[in-house]
């Protein structure tokens, strides 16, 4: 489900930069928006700035420059100001072993967003809250779960289901998932992905899905922003970006995914325009040029000295942008 044109984005990043102490640039002029009910993927390798985007979107950090909006209003300052916004945002974090308080019981963990929103004051209608929690747990595949159990009783997949139940119980407008499957067994990954997709579709939730797996993003989201060293190097319809990438880094990311079937493996061989996939991180390019120039086989001296402009391209699937002097032609 996507929003009609002109509807304000649920979450908007407008030229957002984040520079940490010591001058480390985590985000550099990042722009993207998540429409109501839309599904946007952020993809890139470790250190590309995906998690920084999530932390900014959750209000855990503030941008150094640029504008961050929620339904076209700028993010408020301070914990108190952020509280109403945060109650409209559900999230599932990467590590299910770390994101659930080990000393809390299942019922308390899942009901926490309600307590934070003042909708489940302890001692007031506890049966009602317990019913909501049990219903939510059943909806994520944990029917009959013992609400007095501690999360340690559950495996990684079970814990991630609990985290999803917690994210959804407050009926948020947007669900942010930061690599929710990366620490799970392969057999559990697809179950969790399907659960998230189902929840997004059924509830009309906007979904911001972060992953390092371009293929996975292509299956889940409608649009994708490919990030490298804090910049969005290519963005557009997920299927298009996945099947016909313009930026050499997107191609490298695509080629880096191991194919399970021999036929796919043949097809996945790096093409002439492909980059050195799986090479060293942070390939040494200066921030004045293209961030990928140090690893890019198509790089020219200009790429090292001049920042490529953002090229906009219209396709039948939708608009696409990329930052490259030497894009891969289809």
């Amino acid at each position: 489900m996507t929003a009609p044109p002109g509807t304000p984005a649920v979450i908007g990043f407008e030229h957002v930069s984040k520079v940490y102490r010591g001058g480390r640039v985590a985000l550099d002029d990042v722009t993207f928006s998540l429409p109501p009910g839309g599904r946007l993927g952020l993809v890139g390798e470790s250190g590309s700035g995906k998690t920084t985007c999530v932390r900014l979107a959750l209000g855990l950090e503030r941008p150094s420059s640029g504008r961050l909006t929620f339904r076209s209003d700028p993010y408020p300052r301070g914990r108190r100001g952020l509280r109403p916004l945060r109650r409209q945002v559900g999230f599932v974090l990467q590590d299910p072993y770390d994101s659930l308080d080990p000393r809390m019981r299942l019922g308390e963990i899942v009901a926490e967003p309600l307590r934070s929103a003042g909708r489940a004051v302890p001692g007031r209608a506890p049966g009602e809250v317990a019913g909501l929690v049990a219903g939510q747990l059943a909806a994520v595949g944990l029917p009959g779960a013992d609400l007095r159990a501690h999360p340690s009783r559950y495996s990684g997949g079970g814990r991630q289901r609990i985290a999803i139940a917690r994210a959804l119980i407050g009926s948020p407008a947007v669900l942010i998932c930061d690599e929710p499957t990366s620490s799970l067994d392969v057999s559990v990954q697809s179950q969790i992905v399907n659960l998230l997709l189902e929840a997004s579709r059924e509830r009309g939730l906007a979904l911001l899905f972060v992953s390092h797996d371009l293929d996975l993003i292509g299956r889940i989201t409608e649009t994708v922003a490919v990030m490298y060293r804090g910049r969005v190097v290519e963005a557009g319809p997920a299927q298009l970006v996945r099947s016909a990438p313009r930026h050499p880094y997107t191609r490298a990311l695509h080629d880096a995914v191991p194919a399970s079937h021999p036929r796919e493996r043949r097809l996945a061989r790096p093409s002439a325009g492909g980059a050195a996939a799986g090479g060293a991180l942070a390939g040494g390019a200066s921030r004045s040029g293209c961030v990928f120039a140090g690893r890019c086989p198509r790089a020219t001296p200009r790429c090292h000295s001049e920042r490529p402009p953002t090229v906009r391209e219209q396709s039948p699937e939708g608009p696409r942008t990329y930052d490259c002097f030497h894009p891969i032609s289809s």
Binding site: L85, D101, P102, R103
Partner: peptide, 26 residues
């Protein structure tokens, strides 16, 4: 910086609530 403490904050709990629910027991 543990996930469950940041999660508490990100859920919109007040600072004191995060301290009471997640940090004090620890």
């Amino acid at each position: 910086r543990r996930g469950f403490v940041e999660a508490g904050e990100a859920m919109g709990a007040s600072g004191l609530a995060v301290v009471r629910r997640h940090l004090l027991p620890q």
